[in-house]
Write a protein that binds this DNA or RNA. Sequence first.
DNA 1: TTGTACGCGTTATCAA
DNA 2: TTGATAACGCGTACAA
Lengths: 339, 339
Amino acid sequence: MSQVNIKKLAAALGLSTSTVSRAFRNNNDINPQTKERILQMAETLGYSPNIYASNLRESKSKTIAIIIPEFGNNFFSQAIKGIEQQARANGYHTLIYVTEDDVNQEAAFVRALCNGRVEGVVMSASGEGLKHSHLSMLKEKKVPLVFFDRCYEDVDATCVTGNDYDSSYAATRHLIENGCKRIVYLVVNKKISIGKIRMQGYRDALKDAGVPYDETFVIECTNDKDEIYATLKDAMNRLKPDGAFASVERLAMASLRLCQNEGINIPEDFKLICFSCLEIADMLNPPLSTVKQPAFEMGEKAAEVLFEALSRREVITKKQLIYLPSIIIPRKSTTFINR
Amino acid sequence: MSQVNIKKLAAALGLSTSTVSRAFRNNNDINPQTKERILQMAETLGYSPNIYASNLRESKSKTIAIIIPEFGNNFFSQAIKGIEQQARANGYHTLIYVTEDDVNQEAAFVRALCNGRVEGVVMSASGEGLKHSHLSMLKEKKVPLVFFDRCYEDVDATCVTGNDYDSSYAATRHLIENGCKRIVYLVVNKKISIGKIRMQGYRDALKDAGVPYDETFVIECTNDKDEIYATLKDAMNRLKPDGAFASVERLAMASLRLCQNEGINIPEDFKLICFSCLEIADMLNPPLSTVKQPAFEMGEKAAEVLFEALSRREVITKKQLIYLPSIIIPRKSTTFINR
DNA sequence: TTGTACGCGTTATCAA
DNA sequence: TTGATAACGCGTACAA
């Protein structure tokens, strides 16, 4: 690829390759003048050290990987931003891998990363947390791993996450306090970590308020837009709920659209609250009550933990949970207040 | 990093490193049984070929870079998705670099990529397109470059972009047809490619409709949320516009919020249309008229062009524009129709 | 302060 | 079908 290498540069200057090499490091074992001369010539010849040779030589890549289940929603966008910023501050490059909610994809990515391609991994889990053999590879290879948002219960690693149980409890309670009696829980997969934890908050809030829990009020959806819509429409007709707590933004949006199309009035006939990082939730019709996670901060913190481990040359093995609190922002979709 | 290398694996099997190496390629110059034996042992020892040694040896990295001005908005998220998908389909990894609209950052990234780190670059330009010296480095290094959305006029490379002039003309015309006479153009930087082209569409539409162009109706904003709001508020008070064409989503959202706060009725008192990839534009209050770019397809196409060049081992030098048409979706924010 | 020489882990070439 | 060897480009002991 690169035609001019350290040898040619050295030859052009009548120097040895080691001297040239030194010019590009920050050691001061080189004459400042020759260093200047070398850098000058490098500029004109268009030389810069081959990164992969350096990586090989130093067995370092200055690269981390981000593995996430999906891409393009507000939560992950902001989280990635936080990770990226930390990475850049530490002089690291970032590789992004999207699993499309497929654990096998996740495993494939992890395997492909074990050859030293990255020095660390920041990840939001795609699967249900039962099999983690693909992650033990990372430990074997001494590649530190930090989870954010979604983690595997049986993997020993730090996880930066929201206080999902508390927020879900509070969100459900908020619906109850505003008069809801038939509350559905909208979830993509009730078995994965966040879907499960959030459901527990929902259930306990119901229980504590003396509202009986009905399994059929847990509406499991897919990731397909049309299927979601159909599932919700069916649930609305069958169950006649007066409120919904959505575990992810997408399901709330579908509900909103459904209500608009079907002429169901929010919040009069139906109240809605959901986990969301949407910055324009207040501009929706009606303004949408949300549980807002600190997405950027989560990414930032996860990366921070990773780089700390990296700097101490240690693999994180102890299971540790770091909670970053979400906040509930009530808006018109659950209340009768003006906005 | 990786403790077990090809030598140890070879030793453990009583084979040579070359034979082991062959087991991991798809050539059939190896006995299927020994291959099986090798892969088995690799599994138990946890061996996989060091990627950087391979990269060095083959002078290939199977990696491309995406360089974009900002991260987290719908347009770029979707575009990245398109690029990513193509990359994965071609067996490539993806490095993402965000310049925060800073050309110097862009230059720094490009320089850092010239050592063979990536085989190609997909980029949306951050600057104004006057100085491109940092990009000529790529050409020297024979690293193909493909622009999407925003390109530099003076750089010879393929650019996959929208038909921005036409869409802007049509959007402005749409406002005029709906009765607007005092239309402001909201832009972040009127000198960069898209800001400029879109402004030309705006100007020409005004001219053709016999509406005089007034320079003070071009409102230049920054990227800071609060500054945007203040700028818009001031403009509203001073100019009393009855319509706005926003070149980017963020400015339209700020306008929407401003109108809500100030009690300005949309569309009665003020009409609004903007470039946006927001999927929930129809759920805003009021539903927002948009010029929708095919973001995903743009990314996809740009990557496609790149991989084509890569497969032909050629650097793209001819300047070529590939247009992917945007569509105008009129909604309530510019008309009196119901949605 | 500079140069020599070796090895990082791989793969391609050639010979067996 | 397999093995020995050289080279990819660089950085670092060590020697000068």
